[in-house]
Design a protein around this nucleic acid. Structure first.
Length: 262
DNA sequence: TTCCAGGTGCATA
DNA sequence: TATGCACATGGA
């Protein structure tokens, strides 16, 4: 597991150029982070019966889920609530600059910083976190940092318990709802049941599969968990990027009351 | 100036 | 249990 590492990965024709501090990252670490061993071709082949996912797979060849550091993943998604992606990147950059340790990345024009530890953010406190454009999320992030720093939330254990139990533990964290919790369980722990439903995915599912109905997120999640088993999380990621590629605005459809898939 | 963003918490019915 | 609204901030 890559923890506290700082990487610069550049895509070059036919290969990836990885720059890291010294010899701090092994090949095995990289393969784990990039999930290069995951049989993506086999999964995509199973999507041939679905015209929407097939088109998404063509649009994003080689798109894989990363296996991210659990704390960085949790903290980043706590910051994501009602923020644009470009703003989330800016928040993460500011947090790293202000509270993260510097990292010596080769050929970097400007100094890089690691994502700050739970201890660092817990010590920073809510007021200083607000200086990173966090707004009301600062309180949530400070609380989460304290929970992890004080050992009341063991993030590393979430990968070793069942999905429902891991979900329950994460939902105890202030500022963490079903969407953020599922992001952590999918992107950091690789729980195959995890399926985050955000505004983009909800819009994509409605546009492609339920154009005349409006389903609640739970119903959408049940639909795709069943339809795209055993790896619905991968379908989520392809639909997310496919919808964003279209450039559609991520607002849910207006008409019709909620319906259930059952 | 207005709207809205990789949601969540809380009050109310 | 379902629904509506507030929450900070900044870019379009």
């Amino acid at each position: 597991m890559l923890r506290s590492a700082c990487l610069r990965i550049e895509r070059r024709p036919g290969f990836l150029l990885v720059l890291a501090e010294g010899d701090s990252v092994s090949r095995a670490d990289l393969e784990q982070f990039l999930q290069t061993q995951f049989p993506l071709d086999q999964l995509v082949a199973q999507w041939l019966h679905d015209p929407h996912l097939s088109r998404a797979a063509v649009a994003f060849p080689g798109l894989r889920l990363l296996r991210q550091d659990p704390w960085e993943c949790l903290a980043s998604f706590i910051c994501s609530s009602t923020k644009r992606i470009v703003q989330i990147k800016e928040i993460v950059r500011l947090l790293s600059e202000h509270f993260g340790k510097p990292a010596a990345i080769p050929n970097a024009a400007t100094p890089w910083h690691r994502f700050p530890s739970p201890d660092a953010l817990a010590a920073a406190g809510e007021a200083r976190l607000r200086s990173c454009k966090l707004g009301y999320r600062a309180g949530y992030l400070a609380s989460a940092a304290r929970m992890v720093a004080e050992g009341r939330l063991d993030l590393s254990a979430l990968g070793h318990v069942e999905y429902q139990e891991a979900l329950r533990r994460l939902l105890d964290v202030p500022g963490v709802g079903p969407k953020v919790a599922n992001c952590v369980l999918l992107f950091a722990h690789g729980h195959p049941e995890a399926f985050p439903v955000d505004v983009w995915v909800a819009k994509s599912l409605h546009r492609l599969y339920f154009p005349r109905r409006r389903l609640k997120r739970d119903a959408l999640s049940r639909f795709i968990t069943k339809r795209f088993a055993p790896h619905p999380g991968y379908a989520q990621q392809y639909l997310f990027h496919y919808e964003r590629l279209r450039g559609g605005k991520p607002s849910p459809p207006k008409p019709a009351p909620y319906e259930s898939t059952h």
